[in-house]
Structure formats: structure tokens, C-alpha cells
């Protein structure tokens, strides 16, 4: 294996009862890459990221982050954005920043506050009183304010309005380090494909294809978005 591989999955399997969510997923992501995890709903994107973040146990195969299975070490170098609101709703924005600063040594509180100010989120606002989109933005700001080796973002642009989407994309592009890798899952590929190095297509729990964005555009003459629609046509 390449020495630069920071994140890989080997023959990963996961079942929920009798339903198969992941059926032998294998891939490798090298350092410095921005990778899109694409697939229709139910293709296993969230399951894969949850296993990688150490919140779910696989039934077979393994995930390695910097050569280790999910655990305390991988959690310390992985910044994970779940697909749902995880911050306690009774907290204020400032409390959440303090919480991250408390628990993560690689967290840059000043950067987080600056980002929140850019997005017009007041420090004294209660998280429970924010709109869903604002909560998502808030959570993403916190996730991106860590200087992790691996970022795992589950649907970071799902419920966010287009203006904020641009800001967030810029934030991601400006903030991730050359020695870090970033994997984000999405089914809205159009806006962000030009920001990606590679895409991994998931279908029914298997990797359909892992390919460079420009390589795919060169090969097919289509954007990834168009290719995506073609491949997953119902």
C-alpha cells in the first residue's frame, strides 16, 4: 500500500438485520485529496462514514485511518460531521465553541468564532432556537475549525442555502491542509464537483467506481453530475 494512504476501507460489510448496507466496500484515499462520496439515498454513504467515525461497528472487513482501526487515536485525528444535529440544543453558540476547544487539542477557537461571525451567528444565540440551516452551518464551522488529518463530512451542504453553500465551499477549500484528506458525501454533486479531486461512486453498498474528476470529464466528455445522473438513472 502507498505510504500516503490516510484512509482506507477493506472489504467492509455491514448489515442492519437482514438488510445489507455495505457489501464489500474497498477503497483508499491518499493525503491531500478532496474526495466526494456519491450515491443515491440508501447506497451506504452514511453507514460508511459512521463506521469510519467509530460510531458503528462493521460486520466484516475493516476501516483504517492512518493505519489504525477506529478508536481513540483515529478520533483524535478525524474531524467528523454527522448527518444530523449533534450539538445539545440547550447550548449557546459560544458554549459549543468552548466545548470543542475543551475536548479537541487541534481546535482553533479564534477561527471558529471568525467563521460564525461571517455567517452572522451570534455567540449568545441558543442552538435550539436556530433554523435547521443555521444549525448545520454552525456544526460545519466547528468541524472545519479543527486541524485534523482526515475530515469526514456527511452531507455538509444538504440543508444550506446557496449563498452559504459558496461560503462553506470556500471555507473548506481554504482550511483543509495539504497533509489532510477530506471525504464528503453528497447527492448534490453539481455545485461542488470542481472542488473535488476524486469521486467514489457507491451503489447498493458497493464501490461502483473510484475516479479522478478531470479523468472522468476527459473520458466521458460529461461533468460528474451528468455522469451521476446517467449511472443512477431509475
Amino acid at each position: 500500500m502507498n505510504e500516503n494512504v490516510i484512509y482506507e476501507a477493506q472489504d467492509l460489510h455491514k448489515r442492519y438485520g437482514s438488510r445489507v448496507a455495505l457489501n464489500g466496500v474497498s477503497f483508499a484515499v491518499t493525503t491531500g485529496k478532496l474526495v466526494g462520496l456519491l450515491g443515491p439515498n440508501g447506497s451506504g454513504k452514511t453507514t460508511l462514514l459512521k463506521i469510519s467515525a467509530g460510531l458503528l461497528t462493521a460486520n466484516g472487513g475493516c476501516v483504517l485511518i492512518d493505519g489504525q482501526e477506529p478508536g481513540v487515536y483515529t478520533k483524535s485525528i478525524t474531524s467528523y460531521l454527522p448527518d444530523r444535529m449533534a450539538l445539545p440544543t440547550e447550548m449557546r453558540a459560544a458554549d459549543a465553541v468552548d466545548l470543542y476547544a475543551d475536548f479537541y487539542t487541534d481546535f482553533d477557537a479564534a477561527k471558529a468564532r471568525a467563521m460564525l461571525a461571517d455567517l452572522h451567528i451570534e455567540a449568545r444565540n441558543r442552538i435550539g432556537a436556530m433554523s435547521k440551516g443555521t444549525q448545520e452551518k454552525m456544526q460545519l464551522c466547528l468541524t472545519m475549525s479543527r486541524s485534523a488529518r482526515l475530515y469526514l463530512l456527511d452531507e455538509p451542504l444538504g440543508g444550506v442555502d446557496p449563498a452559504a453553500r459558496d461560503y462553506i465551499l470556500q471555507t473548506i477549500l481554504r482550511n483543509y491542509h495539504e497533509d489532510a484528506a477530506l471525504v464528503l458525501s453528497t447527492h448534490l454533486i453539481g455545485d461542488i464537483e470542481r472542488a473535488l479531486d476524486e469521486v467514489i461512486f457507491l451503489q447498493e453498498g458497493s464501490v461502483l467506481r473510484q475516479v479522478g474528476v478531470d479523468a472522468l470529464r476527459e473520458e466521458t466528455g460529461h461533468s460528474v453530475d451528468e455522469y451521476f445522473r446517467e449511472v443512477y438513472k431509475c
Binding site: G32, K33, L34, D166, L169, Q170, L173, E178, R194, A195, L196, D197, V213, D214
Partner: peptide, 8 residues
């Protein structure tokens, strides 16, 4: 600025 990947 261009909204593209730094590697690209």
C-alpha cells in the same frame, strides 16, 4: 477564489 480543488 475559483471554487476549485487546490490540487487541480
Amino acid at each position: 477564489d475559483a471554487g476549485v480543488n487546490p490540487n487541480t
